[in-house]
Computed example of a mutant assay.
Amino acid sequence: RRSRSTLRKSSRSSYGESSVDDSSGPKAQMKILLNEDITCTYLKSKVSSLVIDGVVQVHLNPDSTPEIPFELNIIDPSLEIKEIYENVKYAKKNPASCNETNHSYIVSVKEVGKYLPIAKYRCHQELRPVPIRVQTVCSTRGKKSQVALQVCVNPRNKGSLSDVNILMAVPPNVKGESVKTFPAGGAWDSNQGCVVWTLHKLRRGDKFQVQA
């Protein structure tokens, strides 16, 4: 028996549940998770590039029967997705249900009790759901340089942001290891040649400033 699960791509993250229950046969209960990573680059306080990569995962509950095939539909009504690839280990395209706004797959998983990646996608670069805005002010005095970053979280975000990394590139002629940040928390990353601030959670409308 085949069931149908639908995931509508309408926000930066989504979560859903679905089930297949046949009292005369096997059953499957699952969770479906959509997660998106946004990489935003600013140049002179303006957005110069923005990349959105997403992954759709399925979690089959431990008491479910594995390898029950089901149809997974990823609906993209705004045509935000540029390219999408299924994980051939668990999924195959379902041409009968595919169209411009619906990416359909037949999914069958063996493992239970853990999240498994079913499909990955990338959105169009023209998409601009900028979650935060970063403005910079730089000044130099003698051999020392100071940078202030004003971070503003978009008040129209549908939820809080988590695991946010802010990277500030440092020119090669500047000794990055000598950096001091205020408030404390920024760290010099010699591999990337930048100062990194890691923020675990930002709420809608939050504003704050960091200096280095």
Score class of each variant (00 low, 15 high):
106 I>Q: 04
184 A>G: 13
73 N>Y: 12
97 S>A: 15
89 K>F: 09
106 I>Y: 08
186 G>N: 05
132 I>E: 01
97 S>L: 15
174 V>T: 07
145 S>E: 02
160 S>A: 14
82 K>V: 08
185 G>L: 04
108 S>T: 06
167 L>Y: 14
116 L>I: 15
167 L>K: 15
186 G>F: 00
100 E>M: 11
128 R>W: 02
159 G>H: 09
149 L>F: 08
121 Y>G: 00
132 I>D: 01
162 S>Q: 14
106 I>M: 07
77 P>Q: 09
154 N>W: 06
117 P>H: 08
76 D>L: 03
80 E>N: 12
182 F>C: 12
147 V>H: 04
117 P>F: 10
128 R>K: 14
117 P>I: 07
175 K>D: 02
178 S>E: 12
154 N>M: 05
140 T>E: 06
97 S>N: 14
117 P>K: 06
108 S>V: 01
167 L>P: 00
97 S>V: 12
144 K>S: 00
175 K>A: 05
79 L>E: 07
158 K>F: 13
126 E>G: 15
184 A>E: 11
101 T>H: 07
153 V>P: 00
148 A>T: 15
153 V>N: 03
78 S>V: 13
188 W>A: 01
158 K>S: 14
117 P>S: 09
135 Q>I: 11
174 V>N: 04
119 A>K: 00
182 F>Q: 13
152 C>T: 15
92 K>L: 03
174 V>C: 05
155 P>G: 09
183 P>M: 07
152 C>N: 13
121 Y>D: 04
137 V>I: 11
102 N>F: 04
120 K>T: 13
126 E>Q: 14
